[in-house]
């Protein structure tokens, strides 16, 4: 994966420049196992009911399992709340404090409602690293995605593909969620920049194929010709189904790295040379958060706000990405300690 290679070479460079001692490739264990081998890290997760979250948990299991057996940390358990609710996750974090974890990695149900529990953890001397669903409490670290950019690049791509512009259908995520607002704002920015495009319809697909299909099928009859569909991930396949059911020509639909979306794209590509691009966050960002927590426990200086790049798949990468993506899963990148160091160093 192009992006991963870049990360690794960046990491290698950073290491060589920074310390000049270790040769790239053998650094992992030597620099990591020193102080954290007795440390316990917990993952507090608010939701597990979709393929992205499943891939996220699986990546966590795989990478931290290896780290535990390598003796880098003593324990790295994942805890998921049964209902996607703030009160439940707050209680869960309080339990994790009592259980004596040294660090809590959290994918939060809410950016601010967990701040109380997070503050308690910080006061108890626990390192809190939030990712994906980040928390605003200043004592916690944040690994955020530049969601706005994720919206904006869709329009940049479309401007390259359809220079004359045209009508767009926007599929948004879950109403009221920070991520949805951010991606939407990025798309608006993109439309302002490329004024030949016009959003003629906007529906909420809740990042779920069935919901997106339903919403798109409803609004489609009232829309003029749609040139392209801008999305947030997990909704592209549903949109394609709705266009097909309505007997309309398939527009250029931006995909969101889900395996079903990539498989559909491949099918179309083979049948009629369909071209698009796909962008989303790799669920493996949970493993980046793990390494960041480990580095903080190791005593490294880590800035409070980190930005993780998103994972973009272009026409040329489609086959390789599809091959490496598990059926029903999401295109993924798991992060190594080196990757984490590169992100910490600001790449």
């Amino acid at each position: 994966m192009q992006f991963k290679k870049t990360l690794i070479s960046c990491a290698a460079m950073a290491m060589v420049l920074g310390t000049g001692v270790f040769a790239a490739g053998t650094i992992d264990i030597q620099s990591a196992s020193a102080d954290t081998s007795a440390k316990k890290i917990a993952l507090s997760n608010n939701y597990a009911g979709n393929s992205w979250r499943q891939a996220m948990l699986k990546s966590w299991e795989k990478v931290t399992g290896q780290a535990v057996s390598d003796g880098i940390v003593a324990e790295a358990s994942a805890f998921t709340t049964s209902e996607n609710q703030v009160t439940e996750q707050a209680a869960q974090i309080q339990n994790l404090i009592l259980q004596g974890y040294d660090a809590i990695v959290v994918n939060a149900a809410s950016p601010d409602a967990l701040n109380g529990a997070v503050k308690q953890a910080c006061d108890a001397g626990i390192v809190v690293v939030s990712f994906d669903g980040i928390v605003t409490e200043p004592c916690a670290w944040r690994i955020a995605v530049d969601f706005k950019q994720m919206g904006a690049i869709q329009l940049d791509y479309l401007a390259g593909r359809i220079p004359d512009g045209g009508n767009l259908l926007e599929i948004r995520g879950l109403a009221g969620v920070f991520v949805d607002d951010e991606i939407h704002a990025g798309i608006e920015e993109g439309v302002a920049k490329h004024s030949q495009f016009k959003i003629v319809g906007s529906v909420h697909g809740d990042w779920a194929q069935e919901v997106a299909q339903k919403a798109v099928a409803g609004i489609l009859p009232s829309l003029p010709e749609v040139k392209a569909v801008v999305t947030q991930g997990g909704d592209g396949y549903g949109a394609a189904q709705a266009f097909k059911a309505a007997g309309r020509p398939t527009p250029l639909i931006i995909m969101g790295n889900r395996q079903d979306e990539l498989a559909w794209w491949k099918e179309q590509k083979d049948a009629n040379g369909y071209e698009t691009m796909s962008v989303s966050i790799a669920p493996g960002v949970s493993t980046l958060a793990f390494w960041v927590a480990q580095q903080i426990l190791d005593g490294q200086e880590v800035p409070k706000d980190l930005v993780v790049p998103f994972l973009q798949i272009n026409q040329a990468d489609l086959e390789t990405s599809l091959e490496t993506t598990e059926k029903g899963g999401v295109a993924n990148v798991e992060y190594s300690l080196d990757d984490a160091k590169a992100v910490i160093a600001g790449e």
Partner: peptide, 15 residues
Amino acid sequence: LSGFSGGSSLNMGEE
């Protein structure tokens, strides 16, 4: 529903 929407998903019943 999984026939209609081209496969099943974990959250397809939510709504």
